[in-house]
């Protein structure tokens, strides 16, 4: 019986400690929940405005929509100002040197690229910086679907460059999908 009492005491103490910790976490969560949601929304907006500068000038609002890519649901952002579409922002996950290269592409209403940004990557350290210094993002500005292949990659970071170009191509394909169906 002595043993049972000891086990019960240990279990009760552990339960009590867990309960107190859970209560503390619930408190912190309640305090930070709104701030985190605001910060995330602001980060999305800032990223979108970076790749679609016209949206910022026009004071456009971004609305998240879904498109159907041969059965796969893909989310994208549509920027509208005074009822007119300013442009779209698409996200595409492709493979550069490593998988998981997430590219954000801004496309204006005519289907030309307005900005490209790496959102997330697992590339070998140094390659994304090389691509940026090599001016690939500037070369992609204004490019339309048929001309992405002709853009020069950055030497010494060819695979990362090609991954980014594949991401942009994907975005322009999504653009076709959206504008044809909408």
């Amino acid at each position: 019986m002595h043993n049972a009492k000891e086990i019960l005491r240990a279990a009760l103490m552990l339960t009590l400690i867990c309960a107190v910790v859970v209560a503390a976490l619930a408190g912190v969560n309640a305090l930070t929940k709104d701030v985190i949601a605001d910060a995330e929304a602001a980060a999305v907006r800032e990223n979108c405005e970076n790749v679609l500068p016209a949206a910022k000038e026009a004071g456009a609002t971004f609305e998240e929509n879904m498109l159907d890519d041969s059965g796969k649901a893909v989310s994208y952002y549509e920027a509208t100002a005074n009822g007119d579409t300013v442009g779209y922002v698409f996200l595409a996950t492709v493979t550069g040197k490593s998988s998981g290269l997430k590219i954000m592409t801004g496309v204006d209403a005519t289907g030309a690229v307005t900005g490209v940004k790496i959102v997330d990557n697992s590339e070998t350290a140094g390659y994304p910086a090389k691509v940026e210094k090599g001016g690939l993002f500037e070369r992609l500005l204004g490019v339309t679907a048929d001309h992405v292949d002709g853009v020069d990659a950055v030497s010494q970071a060819t695979k990362t460059s090609n991954g980014i170009k594949a991401g942009v191509k994907e975005a322009l394909r999504y653009f076709e999908e959206v504008t044809q169906n909408g």
Binding site: E6, I7, R9, A10, A11, M13, L14, I17, C18, V21
Partner: peptide, 13 residues
Amino acid sequence: IPDKVRLPAFIVV
């Protein structure tokens, strides 16, 4: 904290 459950208790904290 009972000795027998000290590690799970530490980890929870």
